[in-house]
Amino acid sequence: MRSVPFSCLVFAVMLVALGAIFLWVPTEKEMGIVQRIFYFHVPAAFSSFLAFFLVFVGSIQYLRTREDKWDRLALCSAELGVIFALIVLITGPLWAKPIWGVYWRWEPRLTSMLITFTIYVAYLMVRGYGANSAPVQRISAVLGILAFANVPLVYYAVDLWAADQQLHPPRNVELEPTMQYTKWICCAAFFLLLFRLIAQRMELARIEKAVALLRQKLIDET
């Protein structure tokens, strides 16, 4: 029940963000209406990296303490990180088609995001094929740490590989103030949504585990 006020806050910030994107912020003069996808694309990318960082933290803490809650944090953050990365990978090509003329180019940022995405999908497969047993939790924690350590290497290698293909809008581009504010409001909305969903998913994982234990107990007794 405690989560209701937080959910209301998330909902309110999301409404404000939607208002800012569709009613308040001016249309970009060169790219036109399609540029508005930027307010979903960029915050989703930040959120996925935040989620992957939480996988890293949860994994380290699980190996140190062996407490289930840290493993739950890693698992739930990985699931949401993959979903947010998928949003990035879907909104990116939607924007690219009218601007670059094609849905996909092997451009450094796209390539890096795709590789990062595949690493965490592999992580989720490990979790999916083993039951939630202690060995799987331990193996996943090792993977969660390695996966995050690999992210900067992926970015560095891909930058070297496709240095002449850099097409992505640069990160330090000067935004018009209204656009800048809208971007931050959207980031706030995405972060709050991420935290809310992780909390919800962790609670669900805890209940799943409790049910599994109860069921086992029942089987043992009969």
Partner: peptide, 11 residues
Amino acid sequence: LLLPMILPALI
């Protein structure tokens, strides 16, 4: 597990 991880080295 290994293929996506060694992609930077492979590249």
